[in-house]
Amino acid sequence: MAGLISRGFLGRRRPAEVENRLPPGQYLVTDFPVLSAGPTPHTPLERWSFTVEGLVGSPVTWSWEEFQKLPTQTYTVDISCVTKWTKLDTRWLGVSIDTLLKAVQVDPAGRYVMAYSDGGYTTNLPLEEMVNGQAFVAYQFDDKPLDPVHGGPARLVVPHLYFWKSAKWIRGLRFMERNQPGFWESLGYHIHGDPWKEERYSGD
């Protein structure tokens, strides 16, 4: 429905100085909105693990302690949520997916990945969009341990796709032959989710 225009309501702003950094239909935020589909899991670190499984030679699992010993990188990236906010220059510390994959033999048929999380959340990604520095598992934000409300102890970050792809509370990656939809992709959201192409909903 078109809707009656509300006098004096301007909606959300796209400041001119950052206009070219905001994907279409997005507005700028400076805070960090909390989005979630369920309660915060609060898995104790001694019970936390990260697993790469599915179409791989043999599955690999890291404990929290082992994961902390993996080489890390710092990232400064812009993130865009499908709920229309974009946050610029977010600073993360994490382990590149490239680093994790060095420990695993991926079956050539395993071209797609299902990221899965504590609490049952899932999201799907093509492998080719996770490698070559495009994605990482972050456990620090702004030089501090990642807050559980933002996905701590660790979350996936895939900055070039809508932020629902950056699974909070991540626990592993499962390699698949076919691109199967995850939690939101199976209910009307776009299978790929590129904010610059405005791939919000299935059919976009």
Binding site: A37, G188, G203
Partner: peptide, 22 residues
């Protein structure tokens, strides 16, 4: 506050229903 609405069981937190409006 997410891409859609998730309704969960108050006893076991199981996701009972999800709603997405496109």
């Amino acid at each position: 506050r997410g891409p859609g609405v998730v309704l969960r069981c108050p006893a076991c937190q199981n996701a009972i229903a999800r709603i997405v409006e496109t």
